[in-house]
Every structure is written in structure tokens, then in C-alpha cells.
Write a protein that binds this DNA or RNA. Structure first.
Lengths: 336, 336
DNA sequence: TTGTAAGCGTTATCAC
DNA sequence: GTGATAACGCTTACAA
């Protein structure tokens, strides 16, 4: 494989001159530039990014560590990250942690080895056991979608408190008095924030005392389990709030299995919309997060930090959700 | 940041000895190893993968170039790739081409620069204009999901011909005589193969002459457009075959907009299933591809090629689809 | 405008 | 078992 030394020999110049042509840096006379460019063509030269990165200490690689790219919310976010990275000349390493702190740790270590210029992280836990990895290192980190303690980083996330509050207000306004909330694990900020927002709405409506809260995981099976538990409560709930898309779908399946219709027999609202392209008949009333934009903004903050020399203070960008009212929330409840 | 030289100084050994400890290669006395390991801990050492890769010519990085990670089929495939890569100690670079050959070219060039050990590619076109990039280079490539001309590479894909054939046989068996096929662009192998398979079934049933074939793109909007065109045909079709998931959803939306019910007014079958976790009420009759497995097998072939010194002949792994019959295909048709 | 020299951090090669 | 030396391919710093 040709190197800049081969090019230099061929073009009759010094390697550094070739480097200048390739990087469009410094002064190079036009005819010299031409000669070099011809050599590049003829030798089918491909720069070695490893050597470049080793010397210049920049790899033009960002990395995205998320819980599961299979979740459409994160897929969309990842696409936003990739588009923004690519638009700025960066490539993207992607890692799935499955919400496991040990996998997260393994990946973060590898990323530090690879000298990625920056890391976009959806942390698996609010109290990260991996915060130590970033101490005394200068790889900047942007936290996406969640809050985390102990890591000094910019944050971009949707407003979980606000979204959940809106959904709560909606249900209360429809007259629901016995509501079940199915959420993720405690210790994950998005899970906790959605509980905070929802509780606030319940409290304001004076129905907090009858609120049922179930903690599980952000996966379908957990949604089914929590739904089955909730239905055993007495009196049973007239509405369900699912704290993410997968829990919602699990809940719908569990209800269907029991022959319960939504919204006729029980109302339902949820966090996270499903992409329009994936759903034939949009049905769920949701607080939709701007997933793509979360990704784009995350890259923006990361690159700004990379560009600026002086350490600026950390920023937290909280993007608003969109309340989309569809059929699943139903109309006003009539209690017998 | 600590380097191997710092460790060597601290442990009172030569750098190469530290290298041996880190890589678990060669002989190192137990007490020396201990000393080195202690130095690693104390200095919080993180190996520099750039230097390593530059010298050793392996980066332990694979790359996945696909059309759009937002499509659940590719999301699942990507997850398979990432899991398999990670299980073997490789990280994954991900790029979206949006089926555009120029974007594909840009990414492939960058990946060659980054010296990724191998590339998994979902080619944007059957006759790749980017095949030249791989000549005289030894970065191995595995082609996923599609066939491509001109690139010497292993291939892993679902059996488009067989899947489409099965769906065709199903429709014919139900008595449909006027069928519309909505597919992707000609020039993309999956699109063409599905037409081949479907035509074969139509031919065997003696209804090929009334088959309507529409070429569009593998996106929802295109599915809607093609459906609207198909409905204008006279006599109008009694069944639709959508050649991928997005086209299917677009078609369903177009039908709904026209007040047509599936399968009562018109039957429908499609390629690609939607992940179970994303669909509340599975409804479409589909030929489901083993997306995750395509990814896993792709990595397997790639790593086998990386490991083996001698150039083995290229392999083509064609994985069977699963025919899943649900409600959308309906029952036997009754013609008036 | 161009070039020289050195070094980025590691490992291959060969020597002891 | 361990080490000296060079080399991987490029760019920084400085000189001319």
C-alpha cells in the first residue's frame, strides 16, 4: 500500500509537502500540488488514519454507547447522531450495553483505547459505577436521554417530567381516578423522572393516593407482567400509563390476552412514539420525544467542546416532548 | 496519559516486556508480570489502539455499511453484527448510505483510511460503481442482504426468490387471479429476486398475464403511491404483494385512506416481518427474513477470512425465510 | 514556499 | 525470559 513517502518520491518532493496537499494546509505552489495529486491518483493512495491519529491526536471518530439500538427510540436517536457526525467528517462507533453496567464499562474502556474523540453515552444507571473511567482523561462525554451522577458532561435529553405530567393531566381531566403507572427500574433517571411528573399531575388532581406504581424494565415482557399485576389490584385501574414504548406494547398484549379493549375497557397513554413508518394505524396517545434531534444536539455539544480550547461550563439541553392524543386514551370515564 | 514507556520505567523493565504482559504473549516471569500489572493499575494505563494498529496492522474494528438503520430489518441485522463482533473483541463502525452510491463511496473510502479489518456492506446497487475501491486492497468484504456484481466477497442473504415464491403460491392457492406486486427499484437484487420468485409462482398458477408490477423505492411513501396506481388498474387487483415492510405499511395506509379493508376488500402479503416487540397486533402475512442471523453469519464469514492466511474461495450463504400466515392474506376469494 | 528532523506509542525482529 | 533497535505512516516544530 502506497504511503506518503512513495508519493513524495514519485512527485519529487518531501513527504511533508504531500501532507500539506492532502490536508490542504500551508502553502504549496500550484504546479507542485498538481504533481502530488497526480501521484495520489496513480498510486491509488489511501491515507492511513491510524498514523494520522497517532501523530495528530485526533481520530475523527465519535462513539455512541446506548442500551439497545433495537428500540426505535434509540434507533432514531442513533440515526440523528450518525447524520450529524457524518456531516462534520466524523465516523461513528456504536455499542449496545443492554442496560448492563459491566458491558458499558467494557465498551467505554475499549473506546478510550481507540482514542475516539468523543463519547455519546446513554448511561445504564443514574449512579454510574463507570464515572471513574473519565477522571483524568480528556475524552469529552455527552450524556443522552438520561441524567447521571458523577460524570462531568453535557447532557441532552427529553423532558421526562413534563411529558409524564402532561399525560397525567390528560388522564385526570378525563375523569380517571384509579390509574396504574408501569415504569422502568428505579435508579434510571428517565424512569424516575416520569414517575415524578406523573405523580405531580395525580397530586394536583387529588388522586395520588390511589395511584399504583409498578417498577420493571423497559422491555415488552416486563410490560406484560406489570399489566397483569395491575389488573389484580382491587378496585382495578381504569387507565394505564406505560413509561416507554416497549412497556406499552407489552401492556397492550396483556390486555388483549385478557380480552380487555383499549380504550373501551381501559384507557392507555405512554411515553415514546413509534416511528410513523412503522405503524399502520397510529393508536396510542403518547408523549413523543424528539429522538432524532436529541442525537443531533448531542453531537453538536460534543463537537463544540472539541473545538473550543478553554473548558466551558457544562450545559444541559432539555428538549420538550410533543403530546399526541390518539384513540387509546379514550373519552371521559363514567363511573357507575 | 501514561504510555508503555512510563510503565516500563516504573516496573524497571523494557517496554517490550510490558507489551508482552498486556498482550499475554511470549514468556514473562511471574514476579515481573506482577510488577508490570501493578504499574498498570497505579498509572491508570489505557493502551493506545492507534499505535498498536499502526504497528500490528490490525485494528479490531469492523464496519457495517447499510442503507438505513431506521428500517427495523436492518436494525435487527445491525444488532446481530454488533453482538457477534463484540463477542470476538471487535468494535463496529456504522454508516447509513440511504441507498445512495455517492454516500456509499464516501464512507467506503473513509473506512479504508481507518483501516477497519473488515467491511460488511449492504450494497446500494446490484452493479456497484464502487467495486473499484476494493481492487488491490486486502480489506475483506462481506456482502449482506443483496447480491452485487464486481466485488469479490462472501455473501450472506435471505432467500428472496424462495420467500416471494411462497407468498405467490399462497395467494394463488387462495384463488386470486389479479395480483399487484409493489417492489423496490430495478437494479437492486432483493427487489429483482422477489419479482423473479413471485413471477414464478404466478406463472405456475397460470395468472402471470394479469400480474401488475410496480417499481418504486423501499419506503413508505413509495408504497402509498404504488398502491394508488395499482387501484386505478381495471379490473383492480384482489391482492397486493409488498416487497418490503415499509412498502407494506405505506400500502396499508393508502388502502385505509380509500376506505378499503384488509383482507375483506383486498388481501395483502409482504416481505420482512416487523419485530414482535414493535407490533401490538401482528396482522400481516409475511416472508420473515432471519435478520439477526444474517448479521451474525456475516461476521462469522468475515472473521474466518481474517483468520485464515490462504485465500479461500468465496462463499454464499443463503438463509431460508419463514412464511408466517396471519390475517392480512385472508381466506379464499370469491369472484362474482 | 519547501524541507529537515523528530516523535506519536506500539510491536516485529533479532540478539543475548 | 528479557531486551535493544528499528519501524509502522504520518504531522509538529522549526529552519531555510
Amino acid at each position: 500500500m502506497a504511503t506518503i513517502i512513495d508519493l513524495a518520491t514519485k512527485a519529487g518532493v518531501a513527504p511533508i509537502t504531500v501532507s500539506r496537499v492532502i490536508n490542504n494546509s500551508g502553502y504549496v505552489r500550484e504546479d507542485v500540488r498538481k504533481r502530488v495529486q497526480q501521484a495520489i491518483e496513480e498510486l491509488d493512495y489511501v491515507p492511513n488514519a491510524l498514523a494520522r491519529g497517532l501523530r495528530s491526536k485526533r481520530t475523527f471518530t465519535l462513539s455512541l454507547v446506548l442500551t439497545d439500538i433495537t428500540n426505535p427510540f434509540f434507533t432514531t436517536m442513533a440515526r440523528g447522531v450518525e447524520d450529524a457526525a457524518s456531516a462534520n467528517g466524523y465516523m461513528l462507533l456504536v455499542c449496545n450495553t443492554d442496560e448492563r453496567e459491566d458491558k458499558e464499562r467494557m465498551y467505554l474502556r475499549l473506546l478510550l483505547q481507540k482514542r475516539a474523540d468523543g463519547i455519546l453515552l446513554v448511561p445504564s444507571r443514574k449512579r454510574s459505577g463507570n464515572a471513574d473511567l473519565f477522571r483524568n482523561r480528556h475524552t469529552p462525554v455527552v450524556i443522552l436521554d438520561r441524567r447521571v451522577e458523577g460524570i462531568s458532561a453535557d447532557v441532552v435529553r427529553g423532558d421526562s417530567v413534563q411529558g409524564a405530567y402532561q399525560l397525567g393531566v390528560l388522564l385526570a381531566g378525563l375523569g380517571h381516578k384509579r390509574v396504574a403507572m408501569l415504569t422502568g427500574p428505579s435508579g434510571v433517571s428517565s424512569s424516575e423522572d416520569r414517575e415524578i411528573g406523573f405523580r405531580k399531575a395525580m397530586k394536583e388532581a387529588g388522586i395520588e393516593s390511589t395511584l399504583l406504581v409498578y417498577n420493571g424494565n423497559f422491555v415488552q415482557e416486563s410490560g406484560m407482567e406489570m399489566t397483569n399485576k395491575a389488573l389484580q389490584a382491587s378496585p382495578s385501574p381504569t387507565a394505564i400509563f406505560a413509561a416507554n414504548n416497549f412497556i406499552a406494547i407489552g401492556a397492550l398484549k396483556a390486555l388483549q390476552a385478557k380480552g380487555l379493549r383499549v380504550p373501551e375497557d381501559i384507557a392507555m397513554v405512554a411515553f415514546d412514539d413509534l416511528p410513523e413508518s412503522m405503524v399502520t394505524f397510529p393508536f396510542l396517545t403518547v408523549a413523543a420525544q424528539p429522538a432524532y434531534d436529541i442525537g443531533v444536539q448531542g453531537v453538536r455539544l460534543l463537537l463544540e467542546r472539541l473545538e473550543s480550547e478553554e473548558p466551558t461550563s457544562f450545559r444541559e439541553v432539555i428538549l420538550p416532548n410533543e403530546l399526541i392524543v390518539r384513540k387509546s386514551s379514550g373519552g371521559a370515564v363514567k363511573y357507575q
